[in-house]
Design a protein around this nucleic acid. Structure first.
Lengths: 220, 220
DNA sequence: ATCTTTCCCACCTAGGTGTGAACC
DNA sequence: ATGGTTCACACCTAGGTGGGAAAG
């Protein structure tokens, strides 16, 4: 797992408020991934996410539940994606395998600020927080999409930033079940079948695909 | 115009943050209504807004441009509605007229917190702020709709609240062009024609109505 | 009777799916 | 030739319109 510095996260979180660079890890913050069972069913087939020029939503959606914040303090919550490895991957004979060990430098991924940001701790803890509107793209643009490299593997991260004028504690969380390979077209038909089965927007394809996929029980 | 106190505004803005009750009017805040020409065309026929049990959006949408805030300070922006008078109105022979001068007590209108709240001054000043999602209702509910009395006239207000731990300056603005009568069904067909002409969601009715209305030019 | 409200409806806006052919 | 990407498309979700009949 490649660790990058958090300067982009800080930059998008401050959004004009003056901060010192006095980071410190928050104590007592708890954060849980929702829909774990769904995520694991995708992870079993090596999850894939479509990237397009105009940006494609993620499915499943990253949803987290947060506890341990100060209800009266102000926070922003941020999603970003770091390369899970330095490899380029290809799908051959029904399996993902590394291809071309040398890799062009990863451009740092622009963090995605949760649209409820900034907000009170009470707001973030009230319900699960869904990143349903984040869009993944393979092209630069200024519409706030996240830029990823196709055929590379990514690890989503959640950052919680406290908005003070004097202190910026940061808490960062990764859920390995949410790893995926960015693709411009699905490679594994088991992944396609799961997407169609669970994403309401793909209901048009339910009839033609609902007999396919790996863990879907046959009638006999 | 009936003035009510601002306790509801304060309550929804604080949302858990500790405030003193040290109100003070902000200096130098400028706020302009957008779409003034559209609003005035409705005002000329005595504007009406539909209220329903589940809540109906406003059309036109209240959009304002704000200047003079501290870009780095945190604010919430709030919309509420006060009775423009104590009358109950009825539409007879193509005109609105008072009916029944004695009036049941107005329940205080729940303020509507702009969904971008809370946010930095820089955010509020970047673009015009649209209250496109506020819903007007004639029934109590807990889904955040604004409760109004049908057949009564209302004056929308915008409040800007600064979120400090020690001070709560408040700035309140009214635009008389946005006054309207709450109704459960449109009374004036000129109003209906204008709504259909300008609201994209009513495009289905454009053909049958586009020859009606007051200021719509005939071909000859 | 009259006035007001409620409900269902067809018809829109707005935009999220994977497909399969075309493109590079 | 191969592998990866793009595009238009049919088909959905989700929900905002006023109309008109029915109800209160």
């Amino acid at each position: 797992m490649i660790k990058s510095d958090l300067s982009h996260v800080i930059e998008i979180a401050r959004s004009g408020i003056p901060f010192t660079n006095n980071y410190q890890q928050m104590e007592g913050v708890k954060i849980c991934l929702e829909d774990g069972e769904l995520w694991r069913s995708f992870k079993k087939c090596e999850n894939e996410m479509i990237v397009t020029k105009n940006g494609r939503r993620m499915f499943p959606v990253i949803r987290v539940r947060i506890a341990g914040l100060d209800p009266n303090a102000m926070y922003s919550v941020i999603l970003d994606f770091i390369p899970a490895d330095k490899k380029r991957w290809k799908y051959v004979n029904g399996k993902w395998e590394p291809s071309g060990e040398k890799q062009a430098q990863h451009t740092p991924c622009l963090p995605y600020l949760h649209p409820d940001s900034p907000n009170f701790g009470a707001h973030w803890m009230k319900d699960a927080i869904a990143f349903s509107k984040v869009k993944l793209s393979n092209k630069c643009s200024d519409k706030g999409q996240v830029l990823l490299n196709s055929l590379h593997k990514y690890q989503p991260r959640i950052h919680i930033v406290r908005l003070n004028s004097d202190v910026t504690p940061i808490s960062t969380h990764e859920f390995t079940d949410t790893q995926f390979v960015a693709v411009t077209a699905y490679q594994n038909e088991q992944v396609t079948a799961l997407k169609i089965r669970h994403n309401p927007f793909a209901k048009a394809f339910l009839d033609s695909k609902d007999k396919q996929g790996e863990s879907l029980k046959r009638e006999r």
